[in-house]
Every structure is written in structure tokens, then in C-alpha cells.
Nucleic acid binder design. Structure first.
Lengths: 191, 191
DNA sequence: GTAAAATAATACAAATATCGTATAAAATTA
DNA sequence: TAATTTTATACGATATTTGTATTATTTTAC
């Protein structure tokens, strides 16, 4: 954890993985760039897969911790959702397409599995929050929580769509529109 | 040249090389992405080095053609320099660091040599233009043309320096400053 | 339509790169 | 100084990539 050599390895690997994905980066290259011998690498990680796991767990761990803080805070439900959407947008900006492509295209079965389980667990956490909100009356009772999960991903896609973006002054404007639509749909509020 | 399959190969390779450099990209990967069989690749290129040469020659060829057009046009010398500096800035934005890093770190001796000769030839062309301008009285006679070449590279470095950029409203403002400095130094013009 | 040419699909040996481990020397730490 | 960590190097075992050969398929030109 706090071992400086291990940190160098992780930090260097992260940089290289973010640029090129993990398939294109060799262990020796990481060691060279991190000024660490290969033996030291193998002291800390069994192989490249374990390093990739470590990094992905670390990254998603931070994001999920932030998410939990939002959901456990004492603010109205709508604010929680707004903040969690905001977090999702920020986190995805911080991600590298090359890195995540490798999980689908070039990962070992074990790594692929680990990745899927992680994603699934996190989606589950989020889904449970929405189910809970539904029980507490914050979310319309006749909507499928699975659809909400699906739609949150679609929102990210839409937020990154350049053609859609052209209709708005700035990215936050588009995110606001998406968020309001997520809350209220298109109909005006009748009292 | 106008063979569509060859164009697909070149275009796909360019995209991949720009992202990852050429060391990290295999011929099979290029073929796969370009929807071209490996045999077709080897019909057009002897090996990866020849493809890299082709691309680098193509890219620099376009840039040098534009440069020549500027220098052969019927405009004042200062305007030629301004435009050529502009061109240099634009071209460098279009370049990928990963791709050029490979020439220095991961190229075969032959490829490395080809690259150096190309760079040298182009620098020579530019130097000759400045020597000619010096003879025609457009450039101060007591300046070393080699210094000018060196300095043009430094200008690019300065134009991309974020710390320096902070002093200006916009990139063109900085480029203007650099260009004026290149022309006049710091002293006010005495008549 | 057919013949010729180009391209694709597949398999393969050879070359190259990467992995993971063993060993001994050097550097660091306590 | 002794114990521990790190490096340097070498190495066989795998894995990947290369370049070619062969055969089937598609495209092109007539």
C-alpha cells in the first residue's frame, strides 16, 4: 500500500495503461519507466493481470466511495441524484477508452470475469439505492429499476454526443437538461 | 497510390500509429482494422518499416509542399516568414508524440537513418531559403543561419509552453509576440 | 458469360518479444 | 555489521508477430 516502489509501479502503469491500454504495455516497460527492477515488480504483483486488477479496483473504489458519501448524506433525494450524475460524468472524463477496450477485447477470461463482477456489484449497489428510494416514495412506483440503470448509462452517452451538445451553450447546460428530463420527463407539473 | 486497398491500409495505419506509435501496432492489427488480408498488405509494402516510411514521407511531403508554395509566392519576406511559422505551428499540432518517439527509441537503424535524412533534407531546404534571404538583404548579415534553424525549433517549444501561454490572451497572441521578437528583437526601431 | 487478376482465408515455420524465475552482486535499512 | 531490500543479469518457457505458401473466393475487364 504505502510502499514507495509499489506506488511507483502503480503510478507508472496507470499512465501507460491510460495511454495505450494494458495489452500494449509490457511488464518490463513498466519497470523501466518506473525505475524498478523486474524482481521488485514480481515481489508486489503475481503478474500483469493482478496489477490491472489492483488499478481498476483502486479507481472504482474511489469512485464508489464518493458515490456512497453522496447517497448517505443528509440532503434531498433529487440532490443526491444530481450529485451522483455529476460524479458519473466527471469519473468518465477521467477514464481512458483504450484501457477499458482492453477489458472487452484483450483480457484473459479471469480478468474479464473480475471486471464484469466489479461492474455488476457496483451497478447492484446503485440499483438497490433506487429500489430503496422507490419504497420510500421518492421514485415513481411503476418504473422498472433496471430501466433506470440502463438509462443512466444512456445519459452518459448522450452527454458525450457532439451533435446533441451543439444545441446547448455549455456541457453543464446539457447535463442539466438531461437531469431535469430524468426527473420530470416532458410533461409540465400539474398540481 | 490510388489503389483503394492501399489507401485503407495507410489510413488505418496512420490512425493507429498516431495513437500508439508504430512499435505497439502489429501488421495483422492494421489488416484487421482496415479489412484487408495480410497478403494484400505484403503486396503493397515489403514490411512495417516501408509502411512507416511511406506515411512519414507522405506527411512531410505535404507540409514541405505547402512551405514551398509560401516561399515561392510573390509576397514580402516578412509575410513569408509569418506564414511559414504559422504552418509549422499547425503541422506540429497535427503530429503525434507517440509516433515520433518511436523513431528515436524503437526504430530500426535503417528507419532511424531514413528519418534523420528526411529531417536533415527539410531543414537544409529551410536553411537555404534563409541564406538566400540573407544575400538579398532581407536578413541581418551578421547572424548565423544555423542559429535561425535552431531558434525556429525553440519557437515551437515556447509556443507550446503552458507557463508562457498564461501571459497571453490567446495562442495567436503568443505566436505574434514570438514572431515579432523573431523579426525585431527587443529594441525599438530607430530611423 | 468467361478468363484473368486481385483479394481473402488459412496454415505454418522462423524470428522476435515477453514472461516468470533463479542467482549473485549491490544498495539500503535497522 | 547483519538483515533486508533492490538491482542486474541470464535464462528457458510461452506467446506474439512476421513473412510466405497454398488454395478458395471475389472482383474486374472483356
Amino acid at each position: 500500500m504505502n510502499n514507495p516502489k509499489k506506488q511507483q509501479i502503480v503510478s507508472t502503469a496507470r499512465d501507460l495503461f491510460w495511454k495505450f491500454g494494458f495489452r500494449r504495455v509490457s511488464i518490463e516497460e513498466i519497470c523501466r519507466e518506473a525505475n524498478v527492477s523486474k524482481m521488485t515488480f514480481y515481489k508486489h504483483f503475481k503478474n500483469k493481470d493482478e496489477l490491472v486488477k489492483y488499478i481498476i479496483d483502486f479507481i472504482t473504489g474511489i469512485a464508489m466511495k464518493k458515490y456512497r458519501e453522496i447517497m448517505d448524506s443528509d440532503i434531498p433525494f433529487t440532490e443526491k441524484v444530481e450529485k451522483s450524475i455529476q460524479l458519473k460524468m466527471e469519473s468518465s472524463n477521467d477514464m481512458s477508452q483504450e484501457f477499458f477496450d482492453d477489458f472487452h477485447k484483450n483480457a484473459s477470461p479471469e480478468l474479464h470475469d473480475h471486471f464484469n463482477k466489479l461492474v455488476h456489484a457496483n451497478l447492484n449497489t446503485i440499483q438497490n439505492d433506487y429500489i430503496k428510494a422507490q419504497k420510500q416514495g421518492d421514485v415513481r412506483p411503476d418504473i422498472n429499476p433496471n430501466f433506470i440503470l440502463y438509462y443512466l448509462d444512456k445519459m452518459l452517452e448522450m452527454a458525450k454526443d457532439e451533435n446533441l451538445m451543439r444545441l446547448y451553450k455549455s456541457p453543464p447546460d446539457l447535463i442539466n437538461e438531461l437531469t431535469r428530463f430524468f426527473f420530470y420527463g416532458i410533461l409540465s407539473r400539474k398540481t
